[in-house]
Design a protein around this nucleic acid. Structure first.
Lengths: 195, 195
DNA sequence: CATTGATTTCAGTAATTCCTGAAAGAAACA
DNA sequence: TGTTTCTTTCAGGAATTACTGAAATCAATG
Protein backbone atom coordinates (compact mmCIF):
# COMPACT_ATOMS: atom_id res chain seq x y z
CA UNK A 1 0.00 0.00 0.00
CA UNK A 2 2.06 2.90 1.20
CA UNK A 3 5.65 2.95 0.20
CA UNK A 4 6.44 6.61 0.38
CA UNK A 5 5.64 9.14 2.99
CA UNK A 6 6.17 12.85 3.08
CA UNK A 7 9.74 13.50 4.10
CA UNK A 8 8.89 15.13 7.39
CA UNK A 9 6.95 12.16 8.58
CA UNK A 10 8.31 10.06 11.36
CA UNK A 11 11.20 7.74 11.15
CA UNK A 12 11.08 4.03 10.68
CA UNK A 13 12.08 3.56 14.30
CA UNK A 14 9.20 5.70 15.47
CA UNK A 15 6.76 3.68 13.44
CA UNK A 16 8.07 0.45 14.82
CA UNK A 17 7.94 1.71 18.36
CA UNK A 18 4.39 2.95 17.90
CA UNK A 19 3.35 -0.40 16.55
CA UNK A 20 5.04 -2.37 19.33
CA UNK A 21 3.69 -0.13 22.04
CA UNK A 22 0.24 -0.21 20.54
CA UNK A 23 0.27 -3.98 20.65
CA UNK A 24 0.90 -3.70 24.37
CA UNK A 25 -2.22 -1.61 24.83
CA UNK A 26 -4.28 -4.41 26.23
CA UNK A 27 -1.66 -5.11 28.87
CA UNK A 28 -2.17 -1.69 30.35
CA UNK A 29 -5.90 -1.88 29.85
CA UNK A 30 -6.18 0.69 27.12
CA UNK A 31 -7.09 0.46 23.47
CA UNK A 32 -4.52 -0.07 20.76
CA UNK A 33 -5.01 3.38 19.27
CA UNK A 34 -4.73 5.08 22.60
CA UNK A 35 -1.47 3.27 23.23
CA UNK A 36 -0.25 4.29 19.78
CA UNK A 37 -0.99 7.92 20.46
CA UNK A 38 0.92 7.67 23.68
CA UNK A 39 3.78 5.90 21.94
CA UNK A 40 4.01 8.63 19.35
CA UNK A 41 4.12 11.38 21.93
CA UNK A 42 6.58 9.52 24.10
CA UNK A 43 9.05 8.48 21.44
CA UNK A 44 9.16 11.86 19.73
CA UNK A 45 9.16 13.75 23.00
CA UNK A 46 7.79 16.75 21.16
CA UNK A 47 4.44 18.48 21.54
CA UNK A 48 1.88 17.50 18.92
CA UNK A 49 -1.49 18.96 18.09
CA UNK A 50 -4.57 16.94 17.26
CA UNK A 51 -4.00 17.24 13.53
CA UNK A 52 -0.44 15.98 13.88
CA UNK A 53 -1.70 12.90 15.64
CA UNK A 54 -4.51 12.40 13.14
CA UNK A 55 -2.31 12.52 10.08
CA UNK A 56 0.61 10.67 11.62
CA UNK A 57 -1.49 7.74 12.80
CA UNK A 58 -4.20 8.05 10.15
CA UNK A 59 -7.08 8.11 12.56
CA UNK A 60 -10.23 10.21 12.71
CA UNK A 61 -10.53 13.49 14.53
CA UNK A 62 -12.95 11.99 17.02
CA UNK A 63 -10.65 9.13 17.80
CA UNK A 64 -7.66 11.42 18.24
CA UNK A 65 -9.61 13.74 20.50
CA UNK A 66 -10.91 10.96 22.70
CA UNK A 67 -7.59 9.20 22.93
CA UNK A 68 -5.80 12.39 23.93
CA UNK A 69 -8.44 13.13 26.51
CA UNK A 70 -8.13 9.64 27.95
CA UNK A 71 -4.35 9.96 28.14
CA UNK A 72 -4.79 13.24 29.99
CA UNK A 73 -7.10 11.47 32.42
CA UNK A 74 -4.50 8.79 32.97
CA UNK A 75 -2.01 11.55 33.67
CA UNK A 76 0.61 10.39 31.20
CA UNK A 77 0.46 13.38 28.86
CA UNK A 78 0.11 17.10 29.48
CA UNK A 79 -1.57 19.92 27.59
CA UNK A 80 0.53 22.77 26.29
CA UNK A 81 -0.57 26.22 25.18
CA UNK A 82 1.47 28.35 22.85
CA UNK A 83 1.08 32.08 22.65
CA UNK A 84 -0.44 33.27 19.45
CA UNK A 85 -1.61 29.79 18.58
CA UNK A 86 -5.13 28.67 19.11
CA UNK A 87 -4.27 25.00 18.85
CA UNK A 88 -3.62 22.87 21.87
CA UNK A 89 -0.51 20.74 21.97
CA UNK A 90 0.11 17.58 23.88
CA UNK A 91 3.36 16.26 25.24
CA UNK A 92 4.13 12.98 26.96
CA UNK A 93 5.65 12.59 30.35
CA UNK A 94 9.24 11.54 29.65
CA UNK A 95 10.16 9.76 32.85
CA UNK A 96 9.24 6.10 32.42
CA UNK A 97 8.92 5.61 36.16
CA UNK A 98 6.52 8.53 36.38
CA UNK A 99 4.50 7.01 33.56
CA UNK A 100 4.39 3.71 35.38
CA UNK A 101 3.40 5.35 38.65
CA UNK A 102 0.56 7.18 36.93
CA UNK A 103 -0.73 3.95 35.44
CA UNK A 104 -0.52 2.10 38.74
CA UNK A 105 -2.28 4.92 40.55
CA UNK A 106 -5.15 5.03 38.07
CA UNK A 107 -5.64 1.31 37.83
CA UNK A 108 -5.72 0.86 41.56
CA UNK A 109 -8.25 3.65 41.85
CA UNK A 110 -10.45 2.38 39.05
CA UNK A 111 -10.24 -1.33 39.55
CA UNK A 112 -8.87 -2.52 42.85
CA UNK A 113 -10.51 0.01 45.15
CA UNK A 114 -14.06 -0.75 43.97
CA UNK A 115 -13.33 -4.46 44.10
CA UNK A 116 -12.18 -4.15 47.68
CA UNK A 117 -15.33 -2.30 48.65
CA UNK A 118 -17.28 -5.09 47.03
CA UNK A 119 -15.35 -7.84 48.77
CA UNK A 120 -15.77 -6.18 52.14
CA UNK A 121 -19.51 -6.09 51.63
CA UNK A 122 -19.57 -9.74 50.74
CA UNK A 123 -17.38 -10.51 53.71
CA UNK A 124 -19.71 -8.71 56.09
CA UNK A 125 -22.53 -10.83 54.80
CA UNK A 126 -20.76 -14.12 55.21
CA UNK A 127 -19.48 -13.25 58.65
CA UNK A 128 -22.91 -12.72 60.11
CA UNK A 129 -24.56 -15.24 57.84
CA UNK A 130 -24.97 -18.88 57.17
CA UNK A 131 -22.00 -19.46 54.89
CA UNK A 132 -19.31 -22.01 55.41
CA UNK A 133 -16.43 -20.63 57.44
CA UNK A 134 -13.96 -21.55 54.68
CA UNK A 135 -15.51 -18.97 52.42
CA UNK A 136 -14.85 -16.43 55.12
CA UNK A 137 -11.23 -17.46 55.23
CA UNK A 138 -10.72 -17.26 51.51
CA UNK A 139 -12.36 -13.87 51.34
CA UNK A 140 -10.09 -12.69 54.12
CA UNK A 141 -7.01 -13.91 52.35
CA UNK A 142 -7.97 -12.25 49.12
CA UNK A 143 -8.85 -9.01 50.87
CA UNK A 144 -5.61 -9.06 52.80
CA UNK A 145 -3.61 -9.60 49.66
CA UNK A 146 -5.32 -6.78 47.81
CA UNK A 147 -4.88 -4.45 50.76
CA UNK A 148 -1.19 -5.16 50.90
CA UNK A 149 -1.05 -4.41 47.21
CA UNK A 150 -2.96 -1.20 47.75
CA UNK A 151 -0.60 -0.02 50.46
CA UNK A 152 2.39 -0.90 48.36
CA UNK A 153 0.95 1.01 45.45
CA UNK A 154 0.23 4.00 47.66
CA UNK A 155 3.82 4.11 48.78
CA UNK A 156 5.02 3.73 45.25
CA UNK A 157 2.77 6.39 43.77
CA UNK A 158 2.97 8.72 46.72
CA UNK A 159 5.65 11.26 47.58
CA UNK A 160 8.09 8.50 48.42
CA UNK A 161 7.67 6.88 45.04
CA UNK A 162 11.24 7.51 43.98
CA UNK A 163 12.39 5.75 47.12
CA UNK A 164 10.45 2.68 46.21
CA UNK A 165 11.83 2.95 42.76
CA UNK A 166 15.25 2.57 44.24
CA UNK A 167 14.04 -0.34 46.33
CA UNK A 168 12.71 -2.02 43.23
CA UNK A 169 15.98 -1.49 41.45
CA UNK A 170 17.98 -2.94 44.30
CA UNK A 171 15.68 -5.89 44.72
CA UNK A 172 15.92 -6.62 41.04
CA UNK A 173 19.68 -6.78 41.28
CA UNK A 174 20.03 -9.00 44.29
CA UNK A 175 21.91 -12.09 43.16
CA UNK A 176 19.87 -15.22 42.99
CA UNK A 177 21.94 -17.76 44.85
CA UNK A 178 23.73 -15.92 47.55
CA UNK A 179 23.55 -12.66 49.36
CA UNK A 180 20.53 -11.69 51.27
CA UNK A 181 17.81 -9.77 49.63
CA UNK A 182 15.86 -7.58 51.85
CA UNK A 183 14.09 -4.31 51.99
CA UNK A 184 16.41 -3.12 54.71
CA UNK A 185 19.11 -2.23 52.24
CA UNK A 186 16.64 -0.25 50.29
CA UNK A 187 15.89 2.13 53.07
CA UNK A 188 19.34 3.52 53.31
CA UNK A 189 20.28 5.82 50.54
CA UNK A 190 18.34 8.06 48.31
CA UNK A 191 20.03 8.76 45.02
CA UNK A 192 17.48 9.43 42.35
CA UNK A 193 19.17 8.28 39.21
CA UNK A 194 19.52 4.56 39.47
CA UNK A 195 18.23 2.44 36.69
CA UNK B 1 -18.90 -41.46 43.67
CA UNK B 2 -18.37 -37.95 44.57
CA UNK B 3 -20.26 -36.16 47.22
CA UNK B 4 -23.39 -35.13 45.46
CA UNK B 5 -24.21 -31.49 45.70
CA UNK B 6 -27.49 -30.63 47.30
CA UNK B 7 -30.13 -29.25 45.00
CA UNK B 8 -29.36 -25.98 46.71
CA UNK B 9 -26.95 -24.27 44.40
CA UNK B 10 -24.06 -22.12 45.60
CA UNK B 11 -24.49 -19.51 48.21
CA UNK B 12 -25.28 -15.90 47.69
CA UNK B 13 -21.77 -14.98 48.73
CA UNK B 14 -20.28 -17.26 46.12
CA UNK B 15 -22.42 -15.69 43.44
CA UNK B 16 -21.40 -12.22 44.46
CA UNK B 17 -17.75 -13.13 44.58
CA UNK B 18 -17.94 -14.74 41.16
CA UNK B 19 -19.55 -11.66 39.74
CA UNK B 20 -17.05 -9.27 41.30
CA UNK B 21 -14.08 -11.33 40.27
CA UNK B 22 -15.44 -11.74 36.77
CA UNK B 23 -15.70 -8.00 36.43
CA UNK B 24 -12.00 -7.84 37.20
CA UNK B 25 -11.21 -10.16 34.33
CA UNK B 26 -9.98 -7.44 32.04
CA UNK B 27 -7.53 -6.26 34.68
CA UNK B 28 -5.72 -9.55 34.53
CA UNK B 29 -6.07 -9.76 30.79
CA UNK B 30 -8.55 -12.60 30.68
CA UNK B 31 -12.18 -12.81 29.65
CA UNK B 32 -15.02 -12.32 32.07
CA UNK B 33 -16.15 -15.92 31.88
CA UNK B 34 -12.67 -17.25 32.43
CA UNK B 35 -12.37 -15.08 35.51
CA UNK B 36 -15.73 -16.32 36.73
CA UNK B 37 -14.68 -19.92 36.37
CA UNK B 38 -11.58 -19.17 38.35
CA UNK B 39 -13.60 -17.31 40.96
CA UNK B 40 -15.93 -20.25 41.39
CA UNK B 41 -13.08 -22.70 41.86
CA UNK B 42 -11.22 -20.39 44.19
CA UNK B 43 -14.07 -19.40 46.46
CA UNK B 44 -15.44 -22.91 46.85
CA UNK B 45 -12.00 -24.45 47.14
CA UNK B 46 -13.48 -27.74 46.02
CA UNK B 47 -12.78 -29.74 42.86
CA UNK B 48 -15.37 -29.29 40.15
CA UNK B 49 -15.92 -31.14 36.90
CA UNK B 50 -16.83 -29.52 33.61
CA UNK B 51 -20.52 -30.15 34.12
CA UNK B 52 -20.45 -28.54 37.54
CA UNK B 53 -18.96 -25.42 36.04
CA UNK B 54 -21.38 -25.45 33.13
CA UNK B 55 -24.49 -25.68 35.23
CA UNK B 56 -23.27 -23.41 37.99
CA UNK B 57 -22.30 -20.57 35.64
CA UNK B 58 -24.79 -21.41 32.88
CA UNK B 59 -22.27 -21.51 30.10
CA UNK B 60 -21.79 -23.89 27.21
CA UNK B 61 -19.64 -26.97 27.29
CA UNK B 62 -17.24 -25.47 24.80
CA UNK B 63 -16.82 -22.35 26.82
CA UNK B 64 -16.28 -24.25 30.04
CA UNK B 65 -13.74 -26.51 28.41
CA UNK B 66 -11.78 -23.68 26.88
CA UNK B 67 -11.85 -21.58 30.02
CA UNK B 68 -10.61 -24.45 32.14
CA UNK B 69 -7.87 -25.19 29.67
CA UNK B 70 -6.78 -21.57 29.68
CA UNK B 71 -6.72 -21.49 33.48
CA UNK B 72 -4.55 -24.60 33.43
CA UNK B 73 -2.20 -22.84 31.02
CA UNK B 74 -2.02 -19.88 33.36
CA UNK B 75 -1.15 -22.29 36.12
CA UNK B 76 -3.82 -21.12 38.54
CA UNK B 77 -5.85 -24.33 38.65
CA UNK B 78 -4.86 -27.99 38.70
CA UNK B 79 -6.39 -31.12 37.23
CA UNK B 80 -7.46 -33.88 39.55
CA UNK B 81 -8.15 -37.51 38.75
CA UNK B 82 -10.32 -39.70 40.89
CA UNK B 83 -10.15 -43.47 40.85
CA UNK B 84 -13.17 -45.10 39.37
CA UNK B 85 -14.33 -41.85 37.86
CA UNK B 86 -13.74 -40.97 34.28
CA UNK B 87 -14.41 -37.31 34.76
CA UNK B 88 -11.67 -34.82 35.32
CA UNK B 89 -11.92 -32.40 38.19
CA UNK B 90 -10.36 -29.02 38.54
CA UNK B 91 -9.28 -27.27 41.69
CA UNK B 92 -7.95 -23.77 42.18
CA UNK B 93 -4.66 -22.90 43.77
CA UNK B 94 -5.60 -21.59 47.21
CA UNK B 95 -2.61 -19.41 48.03
CA UNK B 96 -3.37 -15.93 46.75
CA UNK B 97 0.33 -15.10 46.49
CA UNK B 98 0.92 -18.19 44.41
CA UNK B 99 -1.95 -17.17 42.15
CA UNK B 100 -0.46 -13.74 41.76
CA UNK B 101 2.99 -15.13 41.05
CA UNK B 102 1.58 -17.39 38.35
CA UNK B 103 -0.17 -14.48 36.71
CA UNK B 104 2.91 -12.28 36.83
CA UNK B 105 5.07 -15.05 35.42
CA UNK B 106 2.74 -15.70 32.51
CA UNK B 107 2.16 -12.09 31.63
CA UNK B 108 5.83 -11.27 31.63
CA UNK B 109 6.47 -14.25 29.40
CA UNK B 110 3.66 -13.49 26.99
CA UNK B 111 3.78 -9.74 26.84
CA UNK B 112 6.89 -8.10 28.19
CA UNK B 113 9.48 -10.54 26.88
CA UNK B 114 8.38 -10.23 23.23
CA UNK B 115 8.12 -6.48 23.60
CA UNK B 116 11.67 -6.33 24.88
CA UNK B 117 12.95 -8.36 21.96
CA UNK B 118 11.15 -5.96 19.70
CA UNK B 119 12.52 -2.87 21.40
CA UNK B 120 16.05 -4.22 21.26
CA UNK B 121 15.72 -4.73 17.53
CA UNK B 122 14.48 -1.19 17.08
CA UNK B 123 17.26 0.08 19.28
CA UNK B 124 19.90 -1.69 17.21
CA UNK B 125 18.53 0.02 14.16
CA UNK B 126 18.55 3.49 15.61
CA UNK B 127 22.00 3.10 17.10
CA UNK B 128 23.64 2.39 13.78
CA UNK B 129 21.24 4.50 11.84
CA UNK B 130 20.15 7.94 11.01
CA UNK B 131 17.75 8.61 13.85
CA UNK B 132 17.92 11.45 16.25
CA UNK B 133 19.95 10.58 19.33
CA UNK B 134 17.03 11.44 21.60
CA UNK B 135 15.09 8.51 20.25
CA UNK B 136 17.99 6.33 21.25
CA UNK B 137 17.85 7.71 24.74
CA UNK B 138 14.16 7.19 25.13
CA UNK B 139 14.37 3.66 23.84
CA UNK B 140 17.16 2.99 26.30
CA UNK B 141 15.16 4.31 29.19
CA UNK B 142 12.14 2.25 28.29
CA UNK B 143 14.24 -0.87 27.80
CA UNK B 144 16.02 -0.29 31.09
CA UNK B 145 12.76 0.11 32.92
CA UNK B 146 11.27 -3.04 31.44
CA UNK B 147 14.41 -5.01 32.19
CA UNK B 148 14.34 -3.93 35.80
CA UNK B 149 10.73 -5.03 35.90
CA UNK B 150 11.67 -8.33 34.35
CA UNK B 151 14.39 -9.00 36.89
CA UNK B 152 12.11 -8.05 39.72
CA UNK B 153 9.44 -10.38 38.38
CA UNK B 154 11.97 -13.17 38.03
CA UNK B 155 12.96 -12.83 41.63
CA UNK B 156 9.37 -12.69 42.70
CA UNK B 157 8.25 -15.71 40.71
CA UNK B 158 11.42 -17.69 41.24
CA UNK B 159 12.52 -19.75 44.21
CA UNK B 160 12.99 -16.62 46.26
CA UNK B 161 9.41 -15.58 45.64
CA UNK B 162 8.28 -16.01 49.21
CA UNK B 163 11.16 -13.82 50.28
CA UNK B 164 10.02 -11.08 48.03
CA UNK B 165 6.54 -11.54 49.33
CA UNK B 166 7.88 -10.67 52.71
CA UNK B 167 9.70 -7.73 51.23
CA UNK B 168 6.49 -6.52 49.65
CA UNK B 169 4.64 -6.87 52.91
CA UNK B 170 7.32 -5.00 54.78
CA UNK B 171 7.55 -2.27 52.19
CA UNK B 172 3.83 -1.80 52.33
CA UNK B 173 4.08 -1.20 56.05
CA UNK B 174 7.46 0.39 56.47
CA UNK B 175 7.88 4.12 56.15
CA UNK B 176 11.06 3.56 54.19
CA UNK B 177 13.12 5.98 56.18
CA UNK B 178 10.80 8.52 57.65
CA UNK B 179 7.37 9.48 56.37
CA UNK B 180 4.48 7.29 57.30
CA UNK B 181 2.56 5.09 54.92
CA UNK B 182 -0.71 6.85 55.32
CA UNK B 183 -3.08 6.50 52.41
CA UNK B 184 -4.33 9.40 50.42
CA UNK B 185 -2.11 12.05 51.86
CA UNK B 186 -0.26 12.72 48.69
CA UNK B 187 -2.84 12.79 46.03
CA UNK B 188 -3.78 16.20 45.02
CA UNK B 189 -4.65 16.70 41.41
CA UNK B 190 -1.36 16.85 39.66
CA UNK B 191 -2.54 16.00 36.22
CA UNK B 192 -1.79 18.88 33.96
CA UNK B 193 1.65 19.74 35.22
CA UNK B 194 3.11 16.30 35.28
CA UNK B 195 6.03 17.14 33.07
C1' DC C 1 -11.71 -53.41 19.16
C1' DA C 2 -16.31 -51.83 20.03
C1' DT C 3 -18.77 -49.24 23.41
C1' DT C 4 -19.43 -45.78 26.51
C1' DG C 5 -18.52 -41.51 28.57
C1' DA C 6 -15.84 -37.48 28.70
C1' DT C 7 -13.16 -33.68 26.41
C1' DT C 8 -11.73 -30.70 22.64
C1' DT C 9 -12.30 -28.28 18.48
C1' DC C 10 -14.20 -24.93 15.47
C1' DA C 11 -17.52 -22.75 12.17
C1' DG C 12 -21.09 -19.77 12.78
C1' DT C 13 -23.26 -16.29 15.48
C1' DA C 14 -23.82 -13.17 19.28
C1' DA C 15 -21.95 -9.59 22.02
C1' DT C 16 -18.85 -6.16 22.80
C1' DT C 17 -15.59 -2.75 21.81
C1' DC C 18 -13.70 0.56 18.77
C1' DC C 19 -13.73 4.12 15.23
C1' DT C 20 -15.65 7.49 12.13
C1' DG C 21 -17.60 11.74 10.56
C1' DA C 22 -20.74 15.19 11.00
C1' DA C 23 -22.80 18.33 14.08
C1' DA C 24 -22.67 20.95 18.23
C1' DG C 25 -19.82 23.47 21.42
C1' DA C 26 -16.25 26.60 22.99
C1' DA C 27 -12.87 30.07 22.77
C1' DA C 28 -10.33 33.74 20.49
C1' DC C 29 -10.57 37.53 17.64
C1' DA C 30 -12.41 41.61 14.96
C1' DT D 1 -21.85 41.09 17.88
C1' DG D 2 -20.59 37.60 14.22
C1' DT D 3 -16.80 34.96 12.27
C1' DT D 4 -13.12 31.92 12.45
C1' DT D 5 -10.65 28.14 14.34
C1' DC D 6 -10.17 24.40 17.09
C1' DT D 7 -12.30 20.72 20.25
C1' DT D 8 -15.72 17.58 21.91
C1' DT D 9 -19.59 14.61 21.53
C1' DC D 10 -22.14 10.73 19.98
C1' DA D 11 -25.15 7.82 16.79
C1' DG D 12 -24.27 4.44 13.74
C1' DG D 13 -21.33 1.27 11.45
C1' DA D 14 -16.92 -1.52 11.39
C1' DA D 15 -13.94 -4.53 13.61
C1' DT D 16 -12.86 -7.48 17.13
C1' DT D 17 -13.67 -10.73 20.67
C1' DA D 18 -16.44 -14.18 23.08
C1' DC D 19 -19.78 -17.96 23.14
C1' DT D 20 -22.49 -21.80 21.53
C1' DG D 21 -23.52 -26.38 20.06
C1' DA D 22 -22.67 -30.18 17.48
C1' DA D 23 -19.24 -33.09 15.52
C1' DA D 24 -14.71 -35.00 16.02
C1' DT D 25 -11.46 -36.85 19.11
C1' DC D 26 -9.72 -39.22 22.95
C1' DA D 27 -9.49 -42.65 26.63
C1' DA D 28 -11.04 -46.08 29.71
C1' DT D 29 -13.50 -50.33 30.07
C1' DG D 30 -15.84 -54.84 28.85
Amino acid sequence: MMAVKPSNFGSEAEDRFVEAWGRMGSVWGISRTMAEVHALLYITGAPHCTDDVMSRLEISRGNASMSLRALLDWGVIARIHRRGDRKEYYQAEQDVWAIFRAIVRERMKREVDPLLVNLHEIRDHTRSGDSAPEIDTRLDEMIGFLETGTRLAEQFTGPRGPGLRLAATLLSKTPLGKGKPGPSEATTDERSDAI
